[in-house]
């Protein structure tokens, strides 16, 4: 993979690539992509993609707020897991 493509991909994946990792990762990525190219040998003309292996039926949940949901009154415990929080807000450096 060209370095340029690697950098575009890394940006989309929100991965910072320290310069010293670039070369090594590029080589590993290229090795895999070359291997993936093998797939072009298969005639896939009349094949549908398998996106969901075995599910055939609809699956839906009733629109009820579950009173037994233990998180209903314990959201603080979740917010406390955030690296920075205050007054029930999860806080991050300003995005703007």
């Amino acid at each position: 993979m060209k370095t340029e493509e690697l950098l575009i991909t890394a940006a989309q994946a929100q991965l910072a690539l320290p310069a010293e990792e670039e070369g090594r990762l590029a080589a590993a990525v290229t090795e895999m992509l070359d291997y993936f190219a093998k797939m072009s040998e298969v005639d896939v003309e009349n094949l549908e993609p398998t996106t969901h292996a075995l599910i055939r039926d609809n699956a839906l949940r009733a629109d009820n707020s579950n009173p037994n949901n233990k998180f209903n009154n314990n959201q603080e415990a979740l917010i406390e897991r955030a690296p920075e929080s205050n007054n029930n807000f999860i806080i991050i450096p300003n995005v703007l």
Partner: peptide, 28 residues
């Protein structure tokens, strides 16, 4: 709807911040 699309947290406007959240809608 009464609840959110993928979890049974209440779908309410104007509540206290992060009071209608659970591991599902917080992406745990």
């Amino acid at each position: 709807t009464e609840t959110k699309i993928f979890c049974n947290c209440k779908s309410n406007f104007g509540d206290e911040p992060n009071s209608n959240v659970c591991p599902v809608c917080l992406g745990y």
